[in-house]
Computed example of a mutant assay.
Amino acid sequence: MHLSIPHMFGLKKVFKLGLADSKSQRDAPETIEGGSENDLRRQLIQVLLHDSMRRHGIPPSWLDCQMLLVSSRSRGEGMYVRLIMRHWDLRLLTYAVAFQQSLMTDILRFEPHASQWLHGISWQLEVGDSCPYTELPDRSVWEEHPTPADASTDVMKDLERMFAIRDADMLVRGAEAAHQPSTAYAKTQPMSIEDTPKPGTAYAKTQPMTLETVPQPSTAYEKTQPISLEAIRQASKAGAKT
């Protein structure tokens, strides 16, 4: 049985995979043609990136953007967004994840089908000499974890600083109020003779009563009628019977 060197070391499959990979790389597009669909996508992402930086107050020279054309066996051809950091700033690194999520939200809002052709977002640091951390620290730095006590201490320090500012402001306001006359009440003004009410003007002038205005006797009861002798006899007979 004769075995060749590729069969002995299993190189036949390696050669086939290498040829397949080189073929896929050769077939994948390397440049974005002007006016193509990918060119419109690139312009959209660049506009959204600059708008997001302006909205969040990030200087425009800190970030740059590149669009990479990729070809995946599972997802096919697509694009990859590469965010290039041109200026070192610890705040930008701290909020890099939040910025990436915000940018992705804007892209999906303007292009709902972006998840089909946008394979992902990557970062590249090209900050030159602006980064002060040029060497890795001791391994103990990675093993130290901030405790909740440290966080509570920072909060207490911030509260103490705020209270100190408030107390100082109250002292300044109190000193200024002590040297200024109170304006809570208006100054008393003397009353002139013209403003003094005339006697007898509080009530209307009394009018004489005429005969027509005298109230008539009440007519609520009927006029009393005299009793006749016949009525007295009938009343006596009725009492005798009872």
Rank of each mutant, 00 (worst) to 15 (best):
H56Q: 11
K205W: 03
M67E: 10
I193D: 05
T206H: 01
S115M: 10
S52I: 01
F163M: 09
T94G: 05
W117S: 04
G76M: 07
I58P: 04
L48F: 10
H56Y: 08
K16D: 13
E222C: 09
Y133D: 09
K237S: 11
Y185K: 06
A178E: 11
E77R: 09
V172H: 05
Q234H: 08
I107P: 11
T153A: 09
A204S: 12
P181L: 04
L49P: 03
R54P: 00
S74I: 07
W117T: 08
L44K: 10
L211I: 12
D106V: 02
Q101W: 08
K241Y: 07
K12I: 12
W117I: 14
E135N: 04
K241E: 13
P112F: 07
S218W: 12
Y203W: 12
A149T: 06
S152V: 02
K223Q: 13
A164P: 01
T196R: 00
H113K: 11
T134R: 12
S140K: 09
V214S: 02
E230Q: 12
S218K: 03
E176Q: 13
L19D: 11
H119R: 08
L90C: 02
I107R: 02
P112K: 02
G78L: 06
T201N: 02
T196W: 01
P181T: 00
L108E: 10
R173A: 12
H7N: 03
L92T: 10
I5R: 03
S122Y: 00
T219V: 13
L44I: 12
A149C: 03
S72R: 04
M162P: 00
L211Q: 02
I5N: 02
R75F: 14
P59Y: 01
Y203L: 14
F15L: 15
A184Y: 05
S61G: 03
D138C: 12
I227T: 13
Y221A: 12
Q234T: 14
T201W: 07
R166L: 08
H113C: 11
A184S: 08
R42K: 15
H87I: 09
G35H: 07
L68H: 14
I84V: 15
T31Q: 07
I193C: 02
M104Y: 13
L3C: 05
W117C: 06
I232R: 06
A168E: 14
G10P: 11
L90R: 03
L92F: 06
E143F: 03
E212C: 01
R91G: 05
T134A: 01
P215Y: 01
H179S: 07
R75Y: 13
Y185A: 10
R91I: 06
D158W: 01
T206D: 06
E143Y: 02
E194C: 00
T201I: 09
V127T: 15
T94Y: 05
G34H: 07
H7I: 06
H2G: 08
G200P: 04
V81Q: 09
H87C: 05
P137H: 04
L63S: 01
M1S: 13
W88R: 03
M85I: 15
H2T: 13
H179I: 10
D158P: 00
P215S: 08
T219N: 13
Q66M: 02
S228H: 07
I5S: 04
L159W: 01
T134P: 00
